[in-house]
Amino acid sequence: MKLINKSHVAKRMPVRLAVNTICKGLFFLATLVGLIVLAILFYRIFTQGIGHLNGDFLQNFASRKPEEAGIKAALIGSVWLMAVVAPVSLMLGVGTAIYLEEYARKNWITTFIKVNISNLAGVPSIVFGLLGLTVFVRALALDRSVLAAGLTMSLLVLSVIIVAAQEAIRAVPRDLREASFGMGATKWQTIRKVVLPAAIPGILTGGILALSRAIGETAPLVVVGIPLFIAFLPQTVLDTFTVLPMQIYNWTSRPQEEFQQVAAAGIIVLLILLIVMNSIAVLIRNKFQKRY
């Protein structure tokens, strides 16, 4: 006796296929919502801002007059900030991840630390701003400098980098480590020659995400006290400065209609900077993957 009634299965078939089609449609719609909103945003920003985007805009300092306002200080400031955040957060983050994954003993303390690093990623950025204000600006007397802001920002993105690097390191197959250890390699030689080359694409992907967040973040810098209006460039990491999102925030809060367009132009510059950063990271990633 057959347990499956084939005619019943045949009768159900159209319903199953219809449900499949409906689900496909629903998921496509979900994707579409995001894409359309993004497209509208791009359209608005580009139509508003493209008129202001020219050589003068990039070379001028901020001004009270919208037609003379430029983004030079903020653009260079953002680059300075990245120059501090990228090395500090990557070195500390990857170093921490290597220690936790490769060297630390697996006990409840390590587990506790790992869980709390993940939790740190969820702490509001303004809290990091307060931390930066207390520790770097006041206690270490770094004032409102590139260094103080950069270190604050590094702490903010550190947990993201640690978690991404940990996952990338953990994903390296165990048998590759065993092969290396089996030939008398030390732990560090194994990490350096086997684990890191295999993990670097994953580490960089996490690093890019983290730096992209850092370049767009405003709240902690407001708390640290980074000025909104500045007409000179930093000469050292101890000078004060401003960054793109702060400058954009400043412009959008102006009453004059033209400043909205200046802000749009600023957003375009920020977007381009992000795309350039991502492209560089992708290039580095591909270069490392080709080694295999």
């Binding site: 048998d175 065993e178 092969a179 089996g182 008398g184």
Partner: peptide
């Protein structure tokens, strides 16, 4: 391990 080498169950060459 410089004196005692090991060959594993699954071939595990490096991705090099």
């Amino acid at each position: 391990r410089t004196q005692v080498g090991m060959v594993f169950q699954k071939p595990n060459p490096f991705p090099k």
